[in-house]
Design a protein around this nucleic acid. Sequence first.
DNA 1: GACCGCCTCCCTCCCGGGAGGGAGGCCGCC
DNA 2: GGCGGCCTCCCTCCCGGGAGGGAGGCGGTC
Lengths: 215, 215
Amino acid sequence: MIDILLVDDEELVRTGLRAVLEAQGDLRVVGEAADGAAALGLVRSLRPDVVLMDVRMPEVDGLTATRAILRDADAPPRILVLTTFENDDYVYEALRAGADGFLLKRARPAEIVHAVRLAAAGDSLLFPAAIRSLAAGRANRSAAEAVARAGLTDREAEVLRLVARGLSNAEIAAELFLGVQTVKTHVSSVLAKLGARDRTQAVVTAYESGFVAPA
Amino acid sequence: MIDILLVDDEELVRTGLRAVLEAQGDLRVVGEAADGAAALGLVRSLRPDVVLMDVRMPEVDGLTATRAILRDADAPPRILVLTTFENDDYVYEALRAGADGFLLKRARPAEIVHAVRLAAAGDSLLFPAAIRSLAAGRANRSAAEAVARAGLTDREAEVLRLVARGLSNAEIAAELFLGVQTVKTHVSSVLAKLGARDRTQAVVTAYESGFVAPA
DNA sequence: GACCGCCTCCCTCCCGGGAGGGAGGCCGCC
DNA sequence: GGCGGCCTCCCTCCCGGGAGGGAGGCGGTC
């Protein structure tokens, strides 16, 4: 029997997961938490085998909770991170935080069940797109914070990502099907918003802030 | 029925894999290749669903073959990379090359069969240790090699560190009590040794290789 | 409708950075 | 001693990048 803890701020999602999982004979949902802080307490008291953890939650988010749980327990549970999009930038950070695998919310029930069993057995399941984005050295999502603080627009963030991969303005223009002038404009606003003097400093900031992460 | 192509330079390994796979009703080994070049040809003629590809092979290695196969075919097969050690540095490069998953040679037969079925279905299996090494922000092997192979002198390494902190040549000169000309010389040799076009790319390489680490 | 933010593209001006040379001093090794 | 590697500094040439403007279109909001 595999004991499972559900952590998601949406009741609906928890209910859905519970229905899917408990339809199986060998899976048992032993608890539910609506945020990361509650999750930590329940892990201590319930000692589940597997935790299904939503990434985006108010208060304590899934990544922080994952780290806390892994730090806390002597025999921590397996943690599967729930996300909405395959190319979610959280993928990278979550694995870094110690998550054992990834699960798309829109995955078919059989896949969800399957992933839970795999996790309990010590394996890990990643969807191809998630793996690719990992392998491609994709930007991580504390970008969200950096972007939020700096107030970068989508386009600017996109440009910064390419700058942080060593591309010249001309190359970025080609990559995004833009004029070099446009790229220059974006780069300039990025520099201004980041308080960087030149693109080199912008790259440093991008790495230091976690906007992009080393492979 | 899932058609499989085995690529490994060791006959023994191929035989073992074939035995394991063909014991299943739904798996069929349609061919074997002893090196990457032969593999490419067989993929064309046999059109397998899944390729089990050894990484280390004489002549054309597994990564090169993987890239070639993916470039070549219009509907390329799923490629599972075979490796001996969980912490094999090839993990990163292989995924980057487009491999769909990883398989340890010492995996239990059931796991191998399982991974093949997953791959055929479009999922990907990674062993926890492999994922961890990926997610741990492991230094990009090629970048690390670039720096290691580069054979930077002490002075050059020192300069690169400052470049990777966003300093201009003039600032570096002031920091190290040097002439700007001297700094330029050092920067130029660093760029040459790293194969970087400009200081921005050098910074990227420095981070990707782990030469400098984000705070 | 007026306004604002974003994206797009244009211009000029200027400087720093990088290429591609050369050269002298120092140290350690053969 | 001679040689090679490293560090230092010099020169010129040139381009890309960044500053500092302006402007039009588009989609929102008030």
